[in-house]
C-alpha cells in the first residue's frame, strides 16, 4: 500500500496548478523512491516530468509499484478543499480503485477525507536521454516569467541565444520587435536574484512562447529556474524543489525558417 504524508498541502497544490493546463490525465507512479509523473501535452510538443522523492514526505511508505491514474481537474477540485498549511496524506491500496486524501489542520482538530476515483490511463512513457547541455542558465523564476509574458505580447515565438556575452531572449512580430539580455550577476545579499550562465558552446534556439508562459505557472514553487539548452534538442526548464525533488518541463524547438 501507499501512504505518503506531506507537511504542507501547498506543495502538491502548486505542482498540480502548474501542470493542469498542460496535461489532463496522468499516472502518478509510486514506488519506494517516491512519486513520479511523466506526461506529454496533447500536441506532443511539451513533456512534464515531476519527481517527488520519498524524502519529501514524512513518513513515506510504498510496498510495491502502484500507478495512480488521476484526472488533474478532479484532483484540483479536491485539493481546493485543503488549506495551504494543512498536513496532506495520500493513501492507496495495492490494486486501488480510488486514492484517498486526508487533510489535517495542524492548529485545530479538523480532519477532512476525500476519495478520488482512479482511471486506467494507457500512457506512453518516453526515455529522456542524459544530456550534457551546451548552456545552462540559472535565473530568478519571476524574471523568466516576466520576460516570457512581455515578449508574448509581441510574438508567438522567442529566440534564446546564449553566448559568452550573456543570454538574449528576442522576438519579432507584427507590431515590432523586442529583446531582453541578461548577463551573469551575483547578488551576495539576495542569492535568489543571481543569474548564472554556464556555457560550453554558443546556442541559439527558437521556442513557442505559449508553452513557456504555461511552464512559468510553476514560478511559485522555486525562486530560481534553470534553463538547459543544446542546439537542436528540447529545452529543459527545471524548478528544483527541496529534497532533490523537481518539476521539469521539456519543450521541442521550432526548426528551420
Amino acid at each position: 500500500m501507499l501512504e505518503a504524508r506531506l507537511e504542507q498541502a501547498n506543495l502538491l497544490k502548486k505542482v498540480v496548478d502548474a501542470i493542469k493546463d498542460l496535461v489532463q490525465d496522468c499516472n502518478f507512479d509510486c514506488n519506494d523512491s517516491g512519486i513520479a509523473l511523466q506526461a506529454m501535452d496533447n500536441s506532443h510538443v511539451a513533456l512534464v516530468s515531476m519527481m517527488l522523492k520519498s524524502e519529501s514526505f514524512s513518513p513515506f511508505r510504498c510496498d510495491r509499484n502502484i500507478a495512480l491514474g488521476i484526472n488533474l481537474t478532479s484532483l484540483t477540485k479536491v485539493l481546493r478543499c485543503a488549506a495551504n498549511e494543512d498536513i496532506l496524506t495520500l493513501k492507496a491500496e495495492d490494486a486501488p480503485d480510488v486514492v484517498n486524501l486526508v487533510f489535517e489542520s495542524a492548529e485545530s482538530d479538523r480532519l477532512s477525507e476525500y476519495d478520488i476515483k482512479l482511471m486506467d490511463i494507457d500512457q506512453e512513457h518516453l526515455g529522456i536521454p542524459e544530456t550534457e547541455y551546451a548552456a545552462t542558465i540559472s535565473m530568478p523564476s519571476a524574471e523568466f516569467q516576466k520576460i516570457c509574458r512581455d515578449l508574448m505580447a509581441l510574438s508567438e515565438s522567442v529566440s534564446i541565444e546564449c553566448t559568452k556575452e550573456g543570454v538574449k531572449f528576442a522576438c519579432s512580430g507584427d507590431i515590432g520587435s523586442g529583446s531582453v539580455t541578461l548577463r551573469s550577476h551575483t547578488n551576495v545579499e539576495k542569492p535568489q536574484l543571481n543569474v548564472e550562465i554556464d556555457l560550453s558552446e554558443p546556442v541559439a534556439l527558437t521556442f513557442s512562447l505559449k508553452y513557456l508562459v504555461n511552464f512559468c505557472k510553476a514560478s511559485g514553487l522555486s525562486e530560481q529556474v534553470r534553463l538547459c539548452l543544446s542546439n537542436e534538442v528540447p529545452l529543459l526548464v527545471e524548478y528544483a524543489l527541496s529534497n532533490n525533488s523537481y518539476l521539469r518541463f521539456y519543450l521541442a524547438p521550432k526548426i528551420g525558417d
Partner: peptide
C-alpha cells in the same frame, strides 16, 4: 519563425 517540432522525435518510447 520555424516549424514546431514534436517532442517524440527527440525522446523515444521506452
Amino acid at each position: 519563425e520555424g516549424t514546431q517540432s514534436n517532442i517524440t522525435s527527440f525522446f523515444h518510447g521506452g
